[in-house]
């Protein structure tokens, strides 16, 4: 297997970036009306950099869209708006609260996580704008259920994902064809791990919402998890109030993901720079494996369920 190399291979980040650019351009080339989902989170921030590399000096051949649960961290929402403005790209925001007003989303109780209801609002937006492809920042290493997800994933007229009816994907020949009403979900960073994302952020010097870095925050410990409390919403109203009898403590934490406030838990950390997070991500994987193993089947099953219903 020793051979003289005719070219040095691309570094792993260059390879991943080139693949992601290729996928975005395939979407642009094959789909008539795509949209890029942008939440202000770290994965979608990487996606915007990839889109810049793919399409500049032109404009992006798609608008950006955020499905807002109304329960997002202020810092993330502000960052989302700022970043879209800097790029000069169109940002569409559709909110779960509007779906609630329309009656298409009904919460079981007030505190219920709105994360899973995003699918309803997303499908409504797809219909409103006639999008034929949604580009998302999901990665295969996020959950075991995603390990077999396609890069171009097919959804039927009801936005449903049928695990038995997915197209084989060979070489780099992506098939994003869809009939009217059907929809493709494209995942350009499928092959990236959390580590790759952090290394890319470091290399590209990407700006992130502040809550990704270690900061002091009032939390309670609930069922072994760190739960942020008294979190101000964009409106200024406080959410995630502590339950009676819970003791609030100040901890140094950072977020690894920044979704809906009701279901994103931070980790204890003193990593206040991207460099430190890269090292922490590498070294803590050993102990985190314990946590990964705790991954209960219900959460994975529910991921499959959500995908079937049209969620990412």
């Amino acid at each position: 297997m020793s051979a003289t190399l005719t070219q040095q291979p691309l570094s792993h980040l260059d390879w991943l970036e080139a693949e992601a650019i290729h996928i975005m351009r395939e979407v642009a080339g094959q789909c008539a009306n795509p949209v890029l989902l942008f939440s202000g989170g770290k994965d979608s921030i990487c996606m915007l950099r990839i889109a810049e590399k793919a399409f500049r000096p032109g404009k992006f051949p798609f608008p950006l869209m955020h499905i807002d649960t109304g329960h997002n961290y202020q810092e993330v929402v502000a960052f989302r708006d700022k970043r879209a403005a800097e790029l000069g790209e169109r940002l569409i925001v559709r909110s779960v609260e509007d779906s609630m007003k329309r009656g298409t989303v009904v919460l079981k109780h007030e505190g219920e996580s709105r994360n899973k209801h995003q699918s309803v609002t997303l499908l409504e937006a797809i219909e409103e704008f006639g999008f034929d492809c949604c580009i998302g920042g999901a990665r295969r290493d996020e959950e075991k259920a995603r390990a077999k997800e396609r890069i171009m994933s097919f959804r039927d007229e009801f936005g449903q994902w049928d695990p038995k009816n997915q197209r084989p994907e060979l070489w780099n020949l992506y098939n994003a064809r869809a009939h009217k009403g059907e929809n493709i979900r494209a995942f350009p960073i499928s092959n990236w791990t959390e580590m790759d994302v952090w290394q890319y952020i470091e290399r590209e010097k990407l700006e992130l919402p502040s809550i990704y870095f270690a900061h002091q925050r009032p939390v309670v410990i609930r069922g072994g998890a760190i739960v942020p409390v008294n979190v101000p919403l964009v409106s200024g109203e406080l959410t995630n109030l502590p339950k009676a009898g819970e003791a609030i403590v100040e901890l140094q934490v950072r977020f690894r993901t920044v979704g809906d406030i009701s279901c994103t838990a931070p980790v204890e950390s003193d990593a206040d720079t991207v460099e430190k997070i890269v090292v922490e991500t590498a070294t803590t994987t050993i102990t985190e494996r314990g946590a990964t193993r705790l991954d209960d089947q219900t959460s994975e099953a529910s991921m499959e369920q959500r995908k079937k219903e049209g969620y990412f």
């Binding site: 792993h12 390879w15 077999k148 092959n191 580590m195």
Partner: peptide, 17 residues
Amino acid sequence: GITIDVAYRYFSTGTRK
């Protein structure tokens, strides 16, 4: 009995992914 798919897994040694 429904294994009809390819699963992708990732690891890195730091020098290679």
